[in-house]
Every structure is written in C-alpha cells, then in structure tokens.
C-alpha cells in the first residue's frame, strides 16, 4: 500500500513538473538487474551450496527533466532483496520494497563551469560510493560496509574546475539515507574534491561528518568517514585504489579497495579484478582484516544488455567465520 502511494506521488509530481516547466525535455528510461547467485561456505567447489537462486534484486525507473534553467531527476528503486526493508524498527523485515532513490532539482547557469545547485534526494558525494557504476556486481566498499548511504536528502553544490582539471561537491544531508525518515536534529556534511594533474591520473579526497542526537534521546553518536582515491586510466587498463577510514564513537575502521579493469575488446569484453581489506576496529587488533577477492568478466551483448560473471571470495579473518564464496551471473538490461 505504501509502495502504491509512493508511485502515485511520483506520478503526480511528474505531471505537475511537466505542466509547470513549459517546454522541459522529459526523458524516461530504466535499468533492471536479473541475477543468478550460487553461494557456499566451505572449501569445495559447488560442494555444499547454501544458495542457488534467480532474482531481480533491483529495477530503476528514471525520469529526467531538463529546461534551460532547471534540470531534475526522479528515480524509483524497486528492490527485491531478502530482508531488504525493515517494516518498522524492530518489527521485522520484508523482501520487496519501493524507494525513491533520487528526487532532485538542479539550478543551472548560476555556477560557472557546468556547476549546479541541487536540492532533494541526491547522491552522497564521497569516495567511490557516488562514482561506482557497478562494473562488478558488488557494491562500492563503503556502501557494502554500510558506512554511509549512497543517497540522502539535502542540499548540495557540485561543479567542475576550469579546463576540466577537477571537480568538487559539497552537501548537507539529513544523514539518515534514503530508506529512513529523519529523526535527528544534527545534519551530515559531505565534501569531495578531485584533481587531475595529468590526463588519466586523478586524486579524490572526501570527508563525511555526521552526528546523531535523536529527538528525545540523550545519547550522542558522532561518525566520521575519510577517503582518498587514486585513479589511473591508461587504456586499456583502468584502476583505482581507495584508502578508507571510519570513526564511530571511539571505534576506528581502516581499509582499502583496489580495482583493476582490462578492456579486451572495447565496448564488448572486459576483465575485472577487485581486492578489498577492512578492519572494523583497528584500535583493538591491528591485523584483524576481512578480505574480499573478486574476479569478473563483462560482456556487452549490445549497448543495452550487459552480461556480468563474477566470482567473489570473502575471507573473514576477524570473525573466524568460514570463507564464503559466491558465483554470480547477472544481466543488466537498460531500456
């Protein structure tokens, strides 16, 4: 019922926008991800499967609206992940959910060099969470670890440096992400700046600060995230390494994500590798890292249909859990 209400709200919003913004160009498109997952926790290859399932974990429906002074984006996220949505705090979880992932309006032509002032539900400008375009099926490291939400409600300024020498973003958010209502008097701040000293080499520094002081609750939590991303793009190789830290009321996390892609045939076939390491509390044990190793192959059947094959190995050093292995095959269809 809630989902139907959300769709109706979006439909009405679109009708209003299209009637108010005379002559705005409206484009509609979407993506859907169809996936097969096989996973196991022991050392045998397909020896003891824990999961063998087909799923459509995500579908995006997107409307983009553009006139000479304004632009907007409304993206509806239809999610089907086991226990992906909490009904109400502590009252259980459901598999299906519909969220508004992005819903923002941009004021154009105010900030030079293609800069925009953005209001609404937008990306969190941090590390690789806003730039990761899923060349591998796994999320960006900070997203996977739930260190911050990939989208949030707020106000932001984004733009580019002269001659395309870099870009910047600064935003103030609720800090609750796009799945929960805000119940917090303090706001989160994210800032990122990237520089390209020479073509193909870019360095991005990001900082995210958030604090919660829930209404009616005295407890105060402060969180801080820092990332530095060095990207190297020398065709046909493309890579980045991200250094990531987190601070949560005394707990200090530290880790990295290293990614490499090799374009074998341009726009047709690529091979990808990723290695993540994460220690959720470095003050307790300096060597207690969990590692992830991913190897993938992307085949672009057409521009609109991408086949992804991934093997993902999780090595939980810290919790001493058995290794987990996943075999994933996914079709990403753009329409």
């Amino acid at each position: 019922m809630k989902s139907i209400k959300k769709i109706l709200i979006v439909a009405v919003a679109l009708l209003i926008i299209s009637s108010v913004v005379e002559s705005a160009e409206i484009t509609f498109y979407g993506y859907t991800w169809m996936r097969y997952t096989a996973s196991e926790t022991n050392k045998k290859w397909f020896g003891d499967l824990k999961e063998s399932s087909f799923s459509i974990p995500r579908t995006y429906l997107r409307w983009k609206i553009k006139s000479s002074e304004l632009a907007g984006n409304i993206t509806v996220d239809i999610n089907n992940v086991k226990g992906g949505q909490e009904i109400e705090s502590g009252k259980g979880k459901i598999d299906w959910a519909i969220w508004i992932k992005y819903c923002y309006v941009d004021l154009l032509q105010i900030i030079p060099y293609d800069g925009v002032i953005r209001f609404g539900m937008q990306k969190t400008y941090f590390g690789t969470i806003d730039t990761w375009e899923y060349p591998l099926i796994e999320k960006a490291l900070e997203d996977k670890l739930k260190l911050l939400s990939s989208a949030d409600l707020g106000f932001g300024i984004t733009g580019y440096l002269p001659d395309g020498l870099g870009d910047y973003a600064l935003a103030v958010y609720n800090g609750s992400g796009y799945k929960k209502m805000e119940n917090n008097l303090n706001k989160a701040i994210a800032g990122s700046i990237s520089l390209i000293p020479i073509s193909g080499v870019s360095l991005r520094l990001s900082q995210y600060i958030s604090s919660t002081n829930k209404i009616g609750v005295k407890k105060y939590y402060a969180t801080e995230r820092t990332a530095a991303v060095l990207s190297l793009s020398f065709y046909p190789l493309n890579s980045f390494i991200e250094y990531l830290t987190s601070v949560d009321t005394g707990k200090r996390g530290l880790g990295y994500s290293a990614f490499l892609s090799w374009t074998i045939i341009n726009q047709k076939l690529e091979m990808l590798f990723r290695n993540d390491g994460w220690n959720s509390d470095i003050s307790k044990n300096k060597e207690s890292y969990d590692y992830t190793y991913i190897i993938g192959l992307n085949y672009y059947y057409t521009d609109d249909l991408l086949l992804q094959i991934n093997y993902q190995h999780e090595n939980y050093y810290k919790s001493k859990k058995a290794d987990s292995k996943q075999y994933l095959v996914q079709l990403k269809w753009s329409f």
Binding site: D114, Y160, D163, I196
Partner: peptide
C-alpha cells in the same frame, strides 16, 4: 566542448 566533458575525457586518460 563543455567543461564537464573535458573533465570526463581527462579522467578517462584523454587529452581533448
């Protein structure tokens, strides 16, 4: 060419 496009090109290793 727009500033945004120059940035994207440089990021991708091109010197437009």
């Amino acid at each position: 060419i727009k500033t945004k496009e120059v940035f994207q090109a440089k990021q991708n290793g091109l010197d437009p």
